[in-house]
Design a binder for these strands. Structure first.
Lengths: 226, 226
DNA sequence: ATCTGGTTTGACTGAATGGTTAAACCATAC
DNA sequence: GTATGGTTTAACCATTCAGTCAAACCAGAT
């Protein structure tokens, strides 16, 4: 009836500082990393606890010792991944550089980061689609990076846009529309890569990304002209 | 050793025309439709044959009778879905209307179609990410809608762009970059919807889509100005 | 009425999967 | 050394799942 009490309620009270260290913290990290790789490769539902254990070089029971269940492990990995994906956008957009520079930086940061984690977008989008309830739990992750709260960034950007539009320097546009377009053009190509390559016949993906990185900022800035 | 021969090699030779009809063709379609709904809801790996059978109101063994295996069923569903997602783009882009109109139509068609199938993008992107090998098999689907072969549309568009760029009517851009941007801005928001709504605080998604449908064409056309 | 052959089903199976447990392990504290 | 308590493991378990099979079903042909 009552919860399966096995472990200290929250999970593993911090043992005498001398006790853990290296080995222990290392194990948890190793499991996390292995889980991230496997979840990204197979998807949450397609991943097998055994495969994660093998990839982390530990016994399968250890996964349940550190994380309660597959679902809990999946959630932990998702939070990290989703946070990672969004922090890029927010950190750059919140800076105090001129708009043109922020946009260019945003594109560059996204393409550079995603080049190193090309399957991240596909994984996160799949997770969003099949487990939207997980999103509730990333509020904290969203607040942690020094970014001053999404809402305020958005409002600031909206004011910026409105002011410049009134001054005739810019085409009027809502921040919520612009940000989505910006993120779309940076992130989507990574998630859809195999299909785009196949259908559009893009043989050299690296060159394609180079070109995109070079030309996308100009394209976007041009779209904002009055 | 040899293949499990159970059924007529390819699958069910067309029985005497009188025999099938309605009931039979209907069953296959019913299974397909149920499978599509379940796969889109749970993802390929997360879907259970039993759930599909229940949703189609048939015995689970029938799924294996009509489609050999879960994998084969998943492939059939994916082909349909991916074809559906791409035919929108190609059919409109291949028309002989002026460029401005084609782009506007593209945005409208995409948003209107995806509004009716909001989870399609998430499903297809997940499938692409975790089963890229499935893409090989959609070549035929891609050719069938009267669209005159993707390659030629792309080439045509590239010539168009180049000509107008030389005439100073347009900013030079490669078709392969433009099409990806266009598709990104239309499709991505649907795949990322729950996250976008949550992070950007978009409460009324319908209104948001209305605004996007209205403003995106202008945004894109503006980006193409010289 | 009976036969025929595709269709549909209930019952079953073997393998895989997430999760559990009790014992072994091992660094530190005494 | 020995006791302590967190960590790690091998073995195990109950369940779920894709896939199979033989029998039942049922329309049309004879």
């Amino acid at each position: 009836m009552a919860k399966p009490v096995r472990r200290p309620s929250t999970r593993r009270a911090p043992p005498p500082p001398a006790a853990r260290r290296e080995d222990d913290a290392d194990t948890e990290r190793r499991i996390r990393d292995a889980a991230r790789r496997v979840f990204i490769r197979r998807g949450t539902a397609g991943a097998r606890m055994q495969e994660i254990a093998a990839e982390a070089n530990v016994n399968q029971a250890l996964l349940h010792y550190y994380f309660r269940s597959k679902d809990a492990l999946a959630l932990a990995v998702f939070r990290e991944a989703a946070g990672h994906l969004f922090s890029v956008l927010l950190r750059v957009l919140a800076s105090d550089r001129p708009l043109e520079e922020r946009i260019t930086q945003c594109v560059h940061h996204y393409i550079d980061t995603l080049r190193e984690h090309p399957y991240l977008p596909g994984y996160v989008l799949a997770e969003i689609t099949f487990h939207p309830e997980r999103i509730e739990s990333i509020a904290e992750v969203m607040r942690s990076p020094q970014a001053p709260e999404v809402k305020s960034i958005l409002a600031q950007l909206d004011r910026d846009f409105a002011r410049r539009a009134r001054a005739g320097e810019m085409r009027p546009i809502r921040a919520e529309q612009f940000i989505v377009s910006l993120a779309s053009m940076c992130v989507f190509p990574f998630a859809a890569r195999p299909m785009l390559q196949h259908v559009l016949g893009i043989d050299d993906w690296d060159r394609y990304l180079d070109a995109r990185r070079r030309e996308l900022p100009g394209f976007i800035l041009n779209a904002l002209r009055p």
